[in-house]
């Protein structure tokens, strides 16, 4: 499993690893959805869903990764859907993200996440890409 849950007194943390920035975006989404829905079902990819695009323009990579997960929370809360990214492009210089994919019906949640925070958040690219983040529950 490329992610683990980190302990926190009131909330919870996630640490996600991947070989490159684009994979880390995809794995971060899976980690967040697994946390909320209990288990993330890869099979949901086979359903056809509405095409959707997420674009982000940030000041640095940490903001980009935190904003990405907050965007997924927004989509879930407002549309009741999960966003499955199929094509992810990151401009590391300009700190921009373009994720294309589809919206799928969300399973029944087992936990609520209010927000993805910057408290204790960290992004590293060496020796592998790693994103640590804490969730406000």
């Amino acid at each position: 499993m490329p992610w683990v849950e980190l302990p926190h007194t009131a909330d919870a943390g996630l640490e996600i690893k991947a070989s490159d920035a684009e994979s880390l975006i995809t794995e971060s989404a899976k980690a967040l959805y697994s946390f909320i829905f209990g288990e993330f079902l890869e099979t949901s990819k086979s359903q056809s869903g509405e095409e959707y695009v997420v674009e982000l323009d940030c000041i640095d990579l940490l903001e980009l990764f935190v904003s990405w997960l907050n965007e997924l929370l927004f989509i879930y809360e407002v549309k009741g859907k999960i966003f499955l990214p199929e094509n992810v492009e990151i401009d590391l210089q300009g700190v921009k993200l373009l994720a294309r994919g589809t919206l799928q019906d969300a399973p029944r949640p087992v936990r609520a996440v209010k927000a993805v925070t910057y408290g204790g958040a960290e992004i590293k690219s060496e020796p592998i890409w790693k994103f640590r983040v804490y969730l406000d529950l």
Partner: peptide, 28 residues
């Protein structure tokens, strides 16, 4: 939740503008 998230982004940019540094980004 969304108001807080929106204004954290605003404050991250404001800190650069006003030359403020904080030990934890969540305190922006």
């Amino acid at each position: 939740h969304q108001v807080c998230d929106d204004y954290i982004k605003v404050m991250l940019r404001a800190m650069n503008k006003y030359g403020i540094s904080v030990p934890d980004r969540q305190l922006c």
